[in-house]
Design a protein around this nucleic acid. Structure first.
Length: 561
RNA sequence: GCGGAAUUAGCUCAGCUGGAUAGAGCGUCGGUCUACGAAACCGAAGGUCGCAGGUUCGACUCCUGCAUUCCGCGCCA
């Protein structure tokens, strides 16, 4: 509807040029907005105010000339000039209800587009170290990242979901040492407990599983506990497998599926890390100082240079990070989106700097990042800080156990990633208006219920019959619902462009509210057969859109609750 | 100290990349079921959009300071 109106306005502008009112057609495309206040029409345009000064006319004068020059059309019922010079357009109400036809014909495809043109995009998210269970922050990353993937798929991108497994380096070493200490019967308060050891209760579970020779199946391999507390390598392999299995189970319970788990260790095995260092050296961006090898990241916007190879010989974490992202580039991902916790934001500059330093034609802003802020968990009015199992943090599993997958996903994705999130467990459990998950799902269940009821009395019912009677949809609540249904494609497109899945959550809240209002104001299964059929079609369309929207968030759309 | 994010109703948050009288839910107050599902609806009260400047026809939105909160700031990952 917007492009259609914009085209009409452009024509009017050309008309004014040919009449000599305007000297030339402005280079800026007319901007069309949806006013908040219904009395301001369905769509409005600010072009008269934007051009007024340049043209030397009063905005209202220009606006009325524009309206006069508007070509004949069936879209606009009437238009007003209001406020400082807005042109408000009232759209023919039949255009609003036509969306029902569009939706029922398109089905699940309604709202989707091919804006991405099938281009490939990789979304990397979660990427937790296999040193403990996933915590709520990982949960937020999982909810946002997966939803981003769904949004990009819905807008025509070919999406690959990737999890980077940090299975090399110091943290894994600490994990092995911690498990070993437990296997030797020490607890975290023991004087010989490793300095940076992991203290959570899960370490003890891993240790006893190792000692008893348990076999775990993680990803593509099977590994059995060796039982020897002195064999650190065996302990490490076993511990990583255990924690990876646990994370896999959590992700499965969270309905998140990855296409690829990329192992950091493979970058060492393939020589990619060495190669990265060589490339950076050859490109002349490195220097040696105090026995260490440095990368001049300040050449690429960093505030200080970074060490690549430590004086004692090992590489810092950021070298494999650069190697990893180079690998992504080599795999042909011209677009990569990394979803991470905001506490890692300082790595962005470093990774991009390293990639620039490789001098292989990677664009400056590559890869893109979506950072989410911290999550705190509230329960019974108090902040929850400890998980029985993990010790120092609340796990994703805790949330799923407390409130279920749907509510957890919804709450973690419904807020802008940039804002800190307070996860209120009691709210997520509430079965009322105050809980948006149930509010939206309830709207869906109501749609299903009405349609069920209609089919009970008329088993041969075809909702499409209502399409012949859309003219019967005329009341304020009914039109408001239809208008909101019509916004869905824009919402999906914008949310995908801006990488903000919470737009979809907000939209669904609005849509559910409009549906509940309609439902309370007008009986669907009463009145003339034409009205009833038309309303049933509207209900079916609403059900379709709610289901599609929830799907984008990874939340289920139940027919009954 | 440096960098990032945030600051909007009593609470939790939106605010469509600069538009008109800043919106929801909860909470408070008052209404609506012999029921197409009340897990719902309708109405009322509630705001100097952290503070001060600037940019312009117009600023919650952009710019500059300041304040406060959170997160980073290692030859850890």
């Amino acid at each position: 509807m917007k492009p259609e109106l914009a085209a009409l306005i452009s024509e009017a502008l050309e008309q004014l040029v040919s009449q000599g009112v305007l000297a030339e057609v402005p280079d800026t495309a007319p901007q069309i907005d949806r006013p908040k206040d219904p009395s301001h029409g369905d769509l409005s345009c600010n072009i008269a105010m934007v051009l007024a000064k340049r043209v030397g006319m009063a905005p209202s004068e220009l606006a009325s000339q524009l309206i006069a020059a508007l070509p004949a059309n069936e879209l606009v019922d009437r238009c007003d000039i209001a406020g400082p010079g807005f042109i408000n357009f009232f759209i023919n109400s039949s255009r609003h209800t036509e969306v029902v036809r569009t939706i029922l014909e398109a089905g699940a495809a309604y709202g989707r587009s091919d804006a991405g043109g099938g281009r490939r995009v990789q979304v990397e998210f979660v990427s937790a170290n296999p040193t403990g269970p996933l915590h709520v922050g990982h949960g937020r990353g999982a909810a946002i990242g997966d939803s981003l993937g769904r949004l990009l798929e819905a807008t025509g991108w070919s999406v690959q979901r990737e999890f980077y497994y940090n299975d090399a380096g110091q943290q894994i070493n600490n994990l092995a040492l911690s498990v070993q200490a437990r296997a030797l019967g020490k607890n975290p308060d023991h004087p010989d407990w490793p300095a940076d050891g992991y203290r959570g209760g899960y370490i003890e579970d891993v240790a006893s599983a190792y000692l008893s020779g348990e076999t775990v199946l993680a990803a593509d391999r099977k590994i059995t506990g060796g039982g020897d507390p002195k064999d650190l390598d065996a302990i490490q392999d076993f511990a990583v497998a255990c924690l990876r299995r646990e994370q896999d189970q959590d992700l499965k319970a969270f309905q998140v599926v990855f296409d690829e788990y990329f192992l950091e260790s493979s970058l060492y095995g393939s020589g990619a890390v060495e190669k990265t260092v060589e490339t950076l050296q050859q490109a002349g961006h490195t220097y040696e100082e105090q026995d260490a090898l440095w990368l001049r990241t300040t050449d690429f916007g960093d505030d200080k240079d970074r060490v690549m190879r430590k004086s004692e010989g090992g590489y810092t974490y950021f070298v494999p990070d650069v190697a990893y992202h180079h690998n992504k580039w080599q795999r042909g991902y011209e677009r990569v989106i990394n979803e991470q916790g905001a506490d890692h934001h300082s790595t962005i500059t470093r990774v991009r700097a390293g990639l620039q330093g490789l001098d292989v034609g990677i664009p400056e802003g590559w890869p893109e990042y979506v950072l989410h802020q911290m999550v705190t968990v509230m329960r019974e009015g108090a902040e929850v800080k400890l998980s029985k199992r993990a010790g120092s943090y609340v796990t994703l599993r805790d949330l799923i156990d407390w409130v279920g997958c749907d509510a957890t996903r919804y709450f973690l994705v419904a807020r802008a990633p940039t804002s800190q999130l307070t996860f209120d467990v009691d709210l997520a459990l509430a079965r009322s208006n105050e809980n948006p998950v149930y509010y939206i799902q309830y709207a869906h269940a109501r749609c299903a219920s009405v349609l069920r009821k209609a089919r009970e009395t008329d088993p041969g019912l075809e909702v499409a019959e209502g399409l012949a009677h859309l003219g019967y949809l005329s009341e304020a609540e009914t039109l408001a619902l239809a208008i909101t249904l019509g916004r869905f494609p824009e919402v999906v497109a914008t949310a995908a462009e801006r990488l903000e899945p919470h737009d979809v959550a907000n939209y669904l809240r609005d849509l559910a509210a409009d549906f509940h209002s309609f439902y309370n104001a007008h009986k669907v299964l009463e009145g003339s057969p034409e009205t009833m059929k038309a309303r049933l079609a509207l209900v079916a369309a609403t059900q379709e859109v709610i289901a599609s929207g929830l799907e984008l968030l990874g939340v289920s759309a139940p027919d009954a609750m």
